[in-house]
Design a binder for these strands. Structure first.
Lengths: 225, 225
DNA sequence: ATCAGAATAGGACATATGTCCTAGTACGCG
DNA sequence: CGCGTACTAGGACATATGTCCTATTCTGAT
């Protein structure tokens, strides 16, 4: 099996034969990017995974409030796009080259063809880990960039859902959205005053889900897509 | 193949035969927990993965400043412990039952025995995803719970490392640690005034790594374990 | 029923932080 | 070289938020 010269040198340097079989190695494609080029675009269909072999890149997402959250800096031999591989149809983040960069591209078809019935537990675990990673990144972006009002609204919409109530204690919610019990207590009081929420014996009951969605500042409708 | 009655009913209810082969199914063990019981303890050796089949649980970690960060709420059919499966020797979080709960336990030996050479790419991807998840959780815990000073110190210790400098622009660093450019600029100025940092033509140069470690408030030494 | 600890609630005060603005410097392109 | 854009830097002001405290209610164990 003869790889192209450029690909072969990276495969040797990074020991990629240790993780890729011959079919996958033969399917690698060399991609070059200039500084500032988009390597993948948030929202595009998931069609490949990329191994960074030269240069540096960054993954980020923009929020509705105009702010940006930077998820990761990449260097060789980081992987781009593996989080969405088994868990999503769309890339969750944009990745941009910070220097000129080189990646080896491996198409999703090749990876999925190699995911045999013997590997179904690992495929499942990959899918769960990928979902956890993207969900956690989304939640933390909100927790870092929005007020506690918006964060509580988002948390309630996600966890109360259709049943309209939520058993978690305020201390646990504060630790989950990353604020103090005191500030959460203020916001719960404000929501109670506006008729959005009641707390009945340790349970938060949603009285006005529409108002929560407004407070969530369009974040909720985006998340549900 | 005859599973125990209790296990068989959960396997049927959740379709676990779709992801587990007969060897793995035979290795499942039923675990019962009371409310408040520790299901896994942060720092313990990774010896199993658990499928939640009844009840609810929460994963959390405590920080050196006495605050706590809650990583996830679990319900059926969430998995506990899979993030550390291929990426760590130790569980990164403690998981506690919030109600009485039932889990199906699958020992790591069984999973690793099933991870054949055909599956080595998936194993590798699982390992990378698991690392990303635990690393990202750690970074975000710090970003949610510590001042920008500590966050910048931690970021610099991680990214400048032994080479003592760091090319990322201040805008990107602000987006990565989740603060405004203005506040980051204040902190950089303060560090410059204390002789800890210089910025030379877009590069941050560390002048006093020891001072950074002190500012990192013992977080750095913990992370390096 | 009683008690201790956990959870909830809110006041007072301080500050870490963000927004908005102006100004200066660096860099890339034509 | 000149210009436009991106990046850095800091002032002024406002506020979201956390710490620390006291008080009340709830829950589980004896």
């Amino acid at each position: 099996m003869a790889l192209k010269e450029g690909i072969a040198q990276y495969v040797r340097r990074f020991g990629l034969a240790d993780m890729l079989d011959e079919t996958a190695l033969a399917a690698l494609r060399l991609m070059r990017y200039g500084k500032g080029d988009l390597i993948i675009r948030s929202g595009d269909d998931v069609d490949a995974v990329l191994f960074v072999v030269e240069g540096e890149a960054k993954a980020y997402n923009s929020l509705d409030n105009g702010q940006r959250v930077l998820a990761a800096f990449y260097q060789p031999l980081d992987i781009i796009g593996e989080a969405e591989l088994f868990s999503s149809q769309r890339y969750a983040l944009s990745v941009e080259a910070m220097t000129s960069a080189v990646c080896l591209r491996l198409g999703v078809d090749t990876i999925l063809a190699g995911a045999k019935p013997d590997c179904r537990l690992l495929s499942y675990i990959c899918g769960r880990l990928g979902s956890k990673l993207t969900d956690r990144f989304k939640a933390d972006s909100i927790n870092l960039r929005y007020t506690v009002e918006t964060r509580l609204a988002m948390y309630l919409l996600a966890s109360a859902g259709d049943k309209g109530f939520c058993h978690a204690g305020l201390g646990d919610i504060a630790d989950f959205i990353g604020c103090s019990y005191r500030q959460l207590s203020r916001v719960v009081r404000a929501f109670r005053g506006k008729g959005i929420l009641d707390n009945i014996r340790g349970t938060l009951v949603v009285r006005d889900g529409g108002a929560l969605e407004l407070l969530a500042d369009d974040l909720y409708t985006h998340t549900k897509q």
